[in-house]
Design a binder for these strands. Structure first.
Lengths: 193, 193
DNA sequence: ACCTAAATGGGGTGGCACCCCGTTTCCGTC
DNA sequence: GACGGAAACGGGGTGCCACCCCATTTAGGT
């Protein structure tokens, strides 16, 4: 990350200060943290913050980029799991739990999904769709996940759960519920836990 | 509604003006509508609005009370449905779709769930838990819904979906996915629709 | 008609996002 | 090492907001 694009050294320094301050402040106050305060903490004028990050969304994306990368890496690890359907469910749970714990992440991803202003949507969203799509395809090819399930719906669901709670336990429970469904089947509950 | 508690006639008039203005404004701008503008549209000072509704949450609850009542009534109608599990799923879909369409409703219900400040939580939430709980119990007694499923989780899920999208189609699809689960079962997809 | 408690709202305070534009800083060139 | 222009900066302005204070008005019982 950190955009190696031609940039003056002082500009690069400020960029990094802002992201660092934003990380701290967003962790404390969530996605609607005060941009003024972030600029103050970073030791730059508010205009500088707005120049580097034209929208709140742009700043949040810089803040969360690393964490999203971590989630994607986790998807690749889980892909080696014996049961692809379990791997998919586990990964969705990880995404939802991470989003629930990390104040602002869910709101940040949501915002990108809502406004179709940016042509190529948020890079974070694309990363998650790619990583999750691979997991989903494995499970569908194995015949254990219904073919009409779409990765974007699963991710939206995980994100929705993150948005609705900040409790990791609740988030995990809701994802388990959503992946298993509500029905009691003749042959018992499939993979109850 | 409208709190028949002893109140001077002018106060009652203002209370109603404010709720009416809030309905219009929240429909246009969502749950974070400007309280100042609502007061201006209602023809009262901002202090009057804050006196009647100490928190934004209190105002939103007054605005959405009727709609939540409608959803609860719908639950009672569906309770007569032949298949209780279908009734439950249909109602959850209705809740999620309604929340997705009605700007601010989901955020309003969420806020009540987040802050355990109010001892008896939001009245809207209690109403939904009661109405949905009855439906869930019917389905569990009929043996078609797993006994460990909790109504609060289902409602949180429906609310989460509302929060994550404002598109009725997407909301309905996500609820269908969550109630059916992701798995492909030997005997085919249960209630695919 | 009067009187008191209830209710009101103009205006103050502090905070915010976002932008303008005069000033400072960097860095390639000589 | 000095210089000059482009790049970057940031103080301060604007307009909006939530929330509160308190002097004034008003309802409605007697």
């Amino acid at each position: 990350m950190a955009d190696t694009r031609s940039r003056r050294a002082d500009a690069q320094r400020n960029y990094e200060s802002i992201v660092a301050a934003a990380e701290a402040e967003v962790a404390r106050s969530g996605a609607d943290a005060s941009l003024e305060k972030i600029a103050r903490d970073a030791g730059v004028g508010s205009a500088t913050l707005h120049r580097h990050f034209p929208t709140r969304q742009a700043l949040l994306e810089a803040v969360f980029h690393d964490q999203v990368e971590g989630l994607c890496a986790q998807a690749h690890e889980l892909a080696g799991n014996a049961d692809p359907a379990t791997a998919l469910a586990d990964w969705l749970r990880a995404v939802a739990v991470h989003g629930a714990i990390t104040r602002g992440l869910a709101a940040s991803l949501l915002a990108s999904g809502r406004a179709p202003t940016t042509p190529a949507t948020s890079s974070c969203e694309v990363m998650l769709v790619d990583a999750g799509g691979a997991l989903l395809r494995l499970a569908q090819d194995a015949g254990t996940v219904r073919p009409e399930v779409a990765i974007i719906d699963l991710l939206t669901l995980a994100n929705a759960v993150s948005l609705a709670t900040e409790d990791a336990g609740v988030a995990a429970r809701l994802i388990a519920l959503a992946t298993e469904g509500i029905h009691l089947h003749a042959n018992g509950v499939p993979a109850a836990r």
